[in-house]
Design a binder for these strands. Structure first.
Lengths: 241, 241
DNA sequence: GTTCATTTGTCCGTATGTATT
DNA sequence: AAATACATACGGACAAATGAA
């Protein structure tokens, strides 16, 4: 009977709640696996899967031979993973929006076709947006998406919904699974300085992003210019084990 | 006895080899789990663990109900995870080094004590380095590490070994498990412009980094200034599942 | 220095559920 | 509707690390 959430996931959430309620405190050991098995009446496999997720997310740390402890330091709140501009801004208490949205269907130039892994004859959509937070321009965003993902869908929802990834997922059934960002610092040229309300040659973050579907195909290539003075890009990296 | 590597890890490497040899091609399905169980004479648990690692690393993609495919696009080569400056430069075929290394033991100021999660009375080491690639200055790096991690160890090895994380791991037995980077674009002031051989007000990447031990304690806080024209910071993010 | 109890790591086999074709 | 393939879950066994007796 259809409890949608798997058991291990419910156990994981239960453990998170016990941390939130102060029953498990940072830096202290939680009950050993055997005790959790007894407590929740589940198998050790399930307990270990739940704990494994919490470890992956940086909430807990396992010390072999001793036990499992709640990580003493909370990582800077889950900016680790893929998060849209919209989500990021909201998390910081800002009101995200977009102005000057322009969408066109066109042939890609060679550089863009190559990044997307398609031929130059296959059409792409160019989605240009200036994005704002509390009505102040923050980023210039120019995305290229192979037309086959968007053809036949209502593109005006991009303006309404703001989050491109949300439109892709909900309307087009294409889920972005991972992204690859290449980050540089550059100087604002005249055009971009004007758009972003900064001075000529002021520093900008320049990001080239590739977004991949679950199946590993390149869904989006985008060039993003971000005001240096108003934005911090926070990223958590874990050592490969 | 004593094969140090666990079975699932050997299976994982075996699968990687079969990709490298062209037996499994990008975008194509690999044998189903049952067949791999037969082939390698191991349990399904073990096969799934091996595949799970490859999925986490972006090498493979699971499509439920259909099978497991080798990701069609190779992610930009494993810059996903935590990698030291030394490793990063070597990977790009450059010769990393460090000049002007200065190490001192001191009391932290309030900002630094707070980041490290220690009291202002607890001593820290300040490790200042200008790092080069092919003899060209690339970054200014100023790290703060609570003294208790380094006291009693030979700090000159930092100059020799170049990689601070390697010294921490091999000499001090402190392993860096994850880092949290906050990235901004800023303008070079006079001092930093001179050190990095760039013009005044040229764009720099500015990174504030916190490095955590396996136990979740802050081991290092560092401020890093990077030449914008010579460096791309590449990062892969995965969606939380 | 050794032994011992505790705790996590690895591995197996099996059964059943769910998504896709 | 049936076959295939991955997802979840159980329970048991032994290995390896740790800290304390």
């Amino acid at each position: 009977m259809g409890n949608a959430e798997p058991l291990y996931y419910r156990i994981k959430e239960a453990l998170e709640q016990r941390i939130a309620k102060g029953e498990f405190r940072r830096g202290e050991f939680i009950p050993c696996e055997a005790d959790l098995v007894d407590f929740y009446k589940v198998s050790r496999t399930t307990v270990r899967k739940a704990i494994g997720m919490l470890v992956d997310e940086g909430t807990m740390t396992i010390v072999r031979g001793r036990g499992t402890i709640v990580a003493p330091t909370r990582l800077n709140y889950r900016v680790a993973d893929l998060m849209s501009f919209t989500e990021l801004m909201r998390q910081q208490g800002l009101r995200p929006s977009a102005i000057d949205v322009r969408i066109s269907r066109q042939r890609p130039d060679k550089a863009i076709a190559e990044r997307l892994g398609i031929g130059e004859e296959e059409a792409v959509y160019e989605i240009y947006r200036v994005r704002t937070a509390d009505d102040e321009p923050i980023t210039i965003n120019c995305s290229y998406i192979p037309a086959r993902y968007l053809d036949g869908h209502d593109l005006r929802s991009i303006e309404r919904k703001q989050s491109l990834y949300k439109v892709l997922e909900e309307d087009c059934h294409v889920e972005i699974h991972s992204t690859e960002d290449s980050i540089q610092a550059i100087s604002a040229d005249r055009t971009r300085a004007e758009i972003l309300h900064v001075g000529l040659n002021d520093p900008l973050l320049y990001i080239e992003r590739l977004a991949y579907s679950k199946a590993g195909e390149v869904v989006e290539f985008s060039r993003i210019y971000i005001r240096g003075d108003r934005y911090k890009h926070t990223i958590t990296l874990r050592k490969r084990s």
